[in-house]
Amino acid sequence: MPTPKTESDAETTTSPQPGIGSKLLNNQLTTIILILFLMIILLGSFTRTFLTANNIFNVLRAFSWIAIASFGQSMVIIGGGIDLSSGSTMAFAGIMTAMMLSYGLGVLVSILIGLGFGVFIGFINGILVSQAKLPPFIATLGMLSILRGFCYGLTSGWPIRDLPRGFLFLGQTDLAFYIWKVPLPALIMVFFVIISYIYLSKTKGGYHIYAVGGNEYAASLAGIDAKRVKYVIYSLSGLFAAVGGILMTSRLGVAAPTAAQGYELDIIAAAVIGGISLNGGEGNVWGALVGAAIMQILRNALVLVGFPAYWQSSAIGAVIISAVMIDQYRKRRI
C-alpha cells in the first residue's frame, strides 16, 4: 500500500517499546498499587492471619468473580457507558446454568447456555443504548430490575441447589502450584485479565472502544461504527458478568435469586478505583483488577481485625473515596 511517509529519509530513533512491566508502573496504576501494597503491609503486620497462603487464596477466590465482571464493566466505561445490570446478570446467568443442569443437560452445554444468556442480555443493553438511544444509566438500570424479576420468577424465590459435582469442580478446585493450592477461579481471573488487556490495548476493536469513549463523534468521523462498538462492549460486559456469576454459582453450589444483589456497585467501584474514568476513554483492566483486590482485601481486613459490622459500609465508602481522591490529586499535580 503506498503510504505518503517516505518524504524524510532521516531514520526515526526507535525507543524501546514499554512492556507490561513498565505499563504496570505507569502513572495511573502506580498510586493504587501503592495503596494496595500499603494495605497488605499494614494487615500483614497487624494480624497474624492475613498473610497466610490460605487467607490470600481465599481473598483471591472471593474477588475473582467481581474482578472478571469488572473487566467487562471496564470496557463499557472506557467506551463511554455504564452497565448497572452486571450484578443481576451474574445472578441470572448462574440461575440459567443451574436450571439447565437441573434439567439434566451436560455441564458444558449448561455453562454455554448461561454464557449465551449473558451475551444476549448485553446485546439487548447495546440495542437499547445505541438504537433506542437511551442513556446507558437508564437502559441498564431497567435491565437490572427486569433480570432480578426473572431470577425470582423463574425460581419462585428458592435457591437452586444439588448441582452436579462436575459443575462444582469449576469453582471449588484448587490447582497445586509448588507448595500452594491456587483456586481455579483465581487462575480464570488471571486468564481473563490478560485477554482483556490484549483486546483493549493491542487490537483494532480495543482501539475503537477507546476512541468511541474518548470522543464518539470524532470516532464516527474517523470511520468507526460507534453502534457496533457499543454492541460489542455491552455484550462483552454481559458475557464477563455471566462468567463471574457462573463461577460464583459453581463455588457456592447454589444459584440464589438474591445472589449478587448490589454487586454492580462493587464492580463499578473496582473499575473506578482502578483509574478508569467515568468520562470514558481512559484506563485499563489492570486497574480494575487492582481495584477489585483493594475492595476485597478491605472487606477481609475488616473482619480479620474485628471491625464492627455495623460500621463496615462506612469504612468501605471512605476507602473508595480516598483511593479515587489520591488518584485525582496525583493527576492534578502532573
Binding site: A211, G213, G214, N215, Y217, A218, L221, S277, N279, G281
Partner: peptide, 8 residues
C-alpha cells in the same frame, strides 16, 4: 469536539 479523542 469532532476531531480528536483528547485523552487518547
Amino acid at each position: 469536539k469532532t476531531g480528536l479523542a483528547l485523552n487518547l
